[in-house]
Simulated assay, not measured.
Amino acid sequence: MNEKYVPYRGYDAPYIFVSYAHKDGNKASEVIEKLQMEQYRVWYDEGIDPGTEWDENIAEHIENCEYFIALLSREYLVSSNCKDELNFARELEKPRLLIYLEDIQLPGGMRMRLSRLQAIHKYKYQSMELFFEKLAETQGLEKCHEKQKQEKTIIIESTEVVQETPRITIPRQGYPYPVKSGDTVYLGKALPGFFLAEGEDLAWRVLNCEDRKAVLLCENVLLNMPYHAVQHGSSDWENCTLRKWLNNDFYEQVFSDSEKEYILWRAHPSRNNPKYRTPGGADTIDPVFLLDVIELTVYGFEQITEIARNNGNISWWLRNPGFSQNFAMNFGWRVHYGGLQVDEPAVGVRPAIVIQTR
């Protein structure tokens, strides 16, 4: 794929999932890049860390997509991964479009299952422009594009308080030093009861830095604490006691007033468990949060694994639910999708924040 175009990152806004065989990369990129040039949000599996949980990552993106496009070819028909993606989209009853990259005959069973879907035979069009005119007219894609255009990105331009969320303000200044992905920065002081000495500077790894915003993950598991401190209780991320502690006692006591000036209050999606489909609950807006399983991949699974290894692979909470809301997912040397009981006290806390940079 052209380096100029990258997959849509996120789940909050409507996006299109494009399924294609990797051997058709050049043909697929022509379609994907045209969609992106026309301001469609597109997700495809370019750049996923192939080391871990590939299936869960793909399934999560299909589950959350607004529209599913399959780029059919001879290579697609012999790819078990491609057929799995198409079947999963069918099971979820996602709106689907078939684009034939070449003249092929579908097997009987597949032809029967797909006969009612909209289809465009790209190879019959003499130019990309004529093909895309037809593509843009398809009913499902047109509806998807309307949703994408209506979806508004919330940008807070000033320090005025927003009425619906009165504590959200944009920092008046950015972090005073230049940062880049992979750097370590120091913000905040350790509190009594942390695994660090009281008053020690907290180290944060820069997982991602773009658009003058840097995502930071604490390099240390700071202490052990239940996800939800109610015996035999259940909770989602929005309502758990750990979230309340992180965004009250932790935020207020760990960071100085000047440091709070460049810590951003950000919206964080509460995604379902990608394996067990346990509901994640409502999205939240917080300055301090826990990573979720998708962010492990988006922000660099290998780097996060290395950070965990430096702490002896102590298990620490993720914000996703486990196989029920009595459990929450955790990460040590690997992702534990079933999770641990939310009132388990011997699980680590490794917070994350987003800061404004200059």
Score class of each variant (00 low, 15 high):
M1K: 10
N2H: 14
Y5S: 05
Y5F: 15
G10R: 00
Y15S: 07
Y20G: 03
G25R: 14
K27N: 13
A28Q: 05
A28F: 06
A28T: 06
M37A: 10
M37F: 12
M37N: 11
Q39I: 10
Y40E: 12
W43K: 02
E46T: 05
G47A: 05
G51Y: 14
T52Q: 15
E53D: 15
E53Q: 11
D55T: 08
I58Q: 04
E60L: 11
E60R: 07
I62D: 10
E63L: 08
N64S: 14
C65Q: 01
E75D: 14
Y76N: 01
V78F: 08
C82P: 05
D84T: 15
D84K: 11
D84E: 13
N87Y: 13
A89I: 00
A89K: 01
R90F: 12
L92I: 01
M112G: 14
K122L: 08
K124Q: 15
K124I: 11
Q126C: 11
S127A: 09
E129D: 14
L130N: 10
E133F: 06
K134R: 15
Q139L: 13
Q139P: 03
C144S: 14
E146P: 05
Q150G: 10
K152E: 13
K152S: 12
T153R: 15
T153L: 13
I154G: 12
I155K: 09
V161Q: 12
V161A: 14
E164Y: 13
T165E: 15
I170W: 10
P171L: 07
Q173I: 06
Q173A: 11
S181V: 03
G182E: 02
T184I: 09
T184D: 05
A197W: 03
A197K: 14
G199C: 05
L202N: 02
V206T: 01
V206W: 02
D211P: 00
V215P: 00
L216W: 00
E219F: 00
H228V: 11
Q231M: 12
Q231L: 15
H232N: 15
H232L: 14
S234Y: 15
N239S: 07
N239R: 11
N239W: 13
L242T: 04
N248A: 15
E252G: 04
Q253T: 10
D257M: 12
D257A: 13
Y262Q: 03
Y262I: 00
L264C: 12
W265Q: 12
W265R: 09
W265V: 02
R266K: 11
R266G: 07
A267S: 15
T278Y: 06
P279L: 01
P279R: 04
G280Q: 02
G280M: 00
G281A: 04
A282K: 11
T284S: 08
P287H: 14
V288P: 04
F289Q: 00
F289N: 01
L291P: 02
L291K: 03
D292Y: 04
D292H: 06
I294W: 06
F301S: 09
T305A: 13
A308F: 01
N310L: 03
N311K: 02
G312P: 01
W316R: 00
L318D: 07
G322R: 02
F323S: 14
F323G: 13
S324I: 07
Q325G: 14
F327K: 08
F327E: 13
A328T: 07
Y337K: 03
Y337D: 05
D343I: 03
E344V: 05
P345Q: 07
A346C: 13
A346N: 15
G348R: 03
V349D: 06
V349A: 05
P351W: 01
V354N: 00
Q356P: 01
